[in-house]
Design a protein around this nucleic acid. Structure first.
Lengths: 191, 191
DNA sequence: GTCTATATACCGATAGAC
DNA sequence: GTCTATCGGTATATAGAC
């Protein structure tokens, strides 16, 4: 009943704090304070910190899946859909400047912690990777679709990291334009 | 005398552990154990953890500066020097697969911790950025040298992050080839 | 289902003997 | 210059009242 609602609040607050402060740097007290409950009540909903992380990763995957479906509804062409992904670094530009990419920074942190949930977090990458590969295949590049998808993922991670280090929006804009032109060139090669 | 040597050992061990485990996840006990001294002795050489971080960043800047000078001695052409930088993701491929880029992962972590030394860590990026810009200027691209340098930095960060997430050496090799061809194309535009 | 109080462990940092 | 011992703070996690 109400427990479901509280649980959602916890996952939502943890998602935000893990992104902005990092997983390790975020304490139970931080999340409890953000939700407005006591630390003790916390353990009624989640037994360990790892359980919260797993729930946050699940929520992120669900949210990204919904976003991809929305793009498929809005964009008729594969190239248009790929451009939607590329433009994230502008759409979420303010957050990325301050906190980097939510996916990349989490996998990097979990990797250094040798955390077991690293593979789960990497599945968010794989969700985008597969989807981008599908778009490139629809573009007539079935043979090297996965390689092209990985190139786009690497682009977004590189731009996010440098944007976080320098807070330079002009740089982000230039790189987006450069990669959109590259996408058009890839499509042209299919004709 | 001997204090100087011990201090160097501490900085060296901290550098390694900050890279492989992350700054926050590395405790004084970890470093002391790696060096082979007690936690108490530690404070004779460094008063705070932030002092160690500052010393590690200084050491990294010195080491990178030495590396750039070596490349300048080995490579006669600007394009060859830029390729040296691009090839780091292969030269240090094993470490990058396991721990990501030492510079990018540190700035990302310090950003989330809102740590004061973030600006110092970002200076390692700036060291490469300025040097790459000089090479592109020597290549005849003085007008957009800094933009091209930023593109190369973003490339290395993107490749490092994805390499860390997927441990795929073939992907790294392909991206390196792609960017080397891009460098040649940039040089051709100057003629 | 939510709270307060508390157990346990580790961290950064200090004091003082040698 | 190195050690052991310890303080104060905070973290995860638990127990039990309401």
């Amino acid at each position: 009943m109400d427990a479901e609602k509280t649980r959602e609040h916890i996952v939502c607050a943890a998602d935000d704090l893990f992104y902005k402060q990092g997983f390790q740097h975020t304490s139970f007290a931080d999340i409890a304070h953000a939700v407005g409950i006591s630390r003790g009540n916390f353990y009624y909903h989640f037994k360990t910190k790892d359980e919260i992380l797993a729930a946050v990763i699940d929520a992120r995957i669900t949210e990204r899946r919904r976003m991809l479906q929305q793009w498929e509804g809005e964009q008729a062409t594969p190239a248009g859909r790929i451009r939607c992904y590329i433009n994230i670094v502008i759409t979420n530009g303010a957050d990325i400047e301050n906190y980097g990419c939510p996916v990349g920074t989490l996998t990097t942190e979990l990797s250094k912690l040798e955390h077991g949930s690293l593979q789960c977090a990497a599945e968010i990458f794989t969700l985008f990777r597969t989807w981008l590969g599908d778009q490139f295949a629809a573009l007539g590049r079935a043979d090297d679709a996965d390689e092209l998808a990985m190139h786009v993922l690497a682009f977004s991670q590189g731009v996010a990291t440098m944007s976080n280090a320098y807070q330079d929006r002009e740089f982000v804009r230039r790189e987006v334009d450069r990669l959109c032109a590259w996408v058009d060139a890839q499509a042209a090669q299919t004709v």
